[in-house]
Design a protein around this nucleic acid. Structure first.
Lengths: 191, 191
DNA sequence: ATAAGTACATACAGTCTGTATGTGAGTAAC
DNA sequence: GTTACTCACATACAGACTGTATGTACTTAT
């Protein structure tokens, strides 16, 4: 499809082909969703053949997984290195929204990902969108809740963060969501 | 496929066929998801032919929509008749969880629905899972928040309710989630 | 009684996914 | 450096699925 024939090491060819596939797939998955995107479409966009795709990835889902892993890596350390800050909840919140502001990321990680791969696998991949950090911050900030109640609080607030990030990614003003989330956290902290 | 030949009015035949299709589709969509379920599978389960399916519904998505509309109708009045109760937030919460306890409903309305039809259409169908009621309850209960902030609060808490309902539908103990949500609501009420 | 519409059933066209197979360039062993 | 082997594809194919077109028996309207 393209000129890969001139003196290139295999490792470079593979890296290049995979990068093209991931970039093309990411673009199309963001625009049209997983099931709305066909593999012929992806390889056309990437300027490779379906043979190349199925050589590197077991199936369409595996390519999708590779796209999300790249996305998750990109977020990676942004949130986790925050646990020890003065106000970890506020800092973590800011870091989360900052990470989710990258175009397409919210749709990939919060909509397509949980549906295609299942919520469990997404959680395992990115640590639940920083839910672990959120849980830790909550555990340190609140009193009078059992462990399972803190788990529930973290899960519920995490869902709120996700929904807010999605709304903001779709064009909503961020401030009301930030205020609302901060107020919710302050509210339980005060109990 | 079945014995529809003996003296049946068209309106009855249609109603019966549609009911069969909706029941079969609901079962399979709950078990295997929308894209994991094929129309041959649905009609086999319903004991009709694909011709019947495509006679009554424009496409597979339209059948899915009919399933969700039936589900939404079933919930219907359970939540809306609550706005005028002494503690509308607590009563609404209980009604919501009660409605979402019906097997399969959480997956259909909270996972498959938003993905297949889009979150906007689901919201329009069931009033955002009672988000309107939640917003009204919040508006009456809290002070010092702007309208858009109350919107944001309602959306965030609504996402929390959904996530909790899903976790409970998947087998989690309900109590911690109830406690957590009630604490969150009490917390902002007190501000 | 006849004409028109309804509710299907069947057949078909197009597209998609994943696999099987073939080929040339790269790599390793000697 | 030559030979054997592996890798990175490219191409061809089989099976399944979706939606449509067409044909038919049963109703309903006139």
């Amino acid at each position: 499809m393209q000129d890969n024939s001139k003196r290139r090491r295999n490792v470079d060819r593979s890296a290049d082909t995979k990068a093209r596939l991931i970039a093309a797939a990411r673009k199309l998955f963001v625009e049209k969703g997983f099931s709305g995107t066909s593999t012929p479409e992806i390889v056309r966009q990437a300027e490779v053949t379906r043979g190349a795709l199925y050589h590197h990835y077991a199936d369409k889902t595996a390519l999708f997984r590779a796209v999300l892993e790249a996305e998750s890596d990109a977020i990676g350390h942004a949130i986790e290195a925050i646990d020890k800050q003065p106000n970890p909840l506020a800092a973590g919140s800011a870091a989360y929204f900052s990470a989710m502001a990258v175009p397409g990321r919210a749709r990939l990680l919060l909509v397509e990902g949980p549906f295609v791969l299942g919520a469990a696998e997404i959680d395992a991949m990115d640590g639940g969108g920083g839910r672990a950090s959120l849980r830790a911050g909550l555990a340190a900030a609140v009193n009078g809740f059992s462990e399972t109640e803190i788990d529930a609080l973290a899960m519920i607030l995490s869902a709120g963060f996700d929904r807010a990030a999605l709304a903001i990614a779709e064009g909503a003003a961020p401030e009301p969501y930030h205020v609302a989330l901060q107020s919710l956290i302050e509210g339980i902290r005060a109990q």
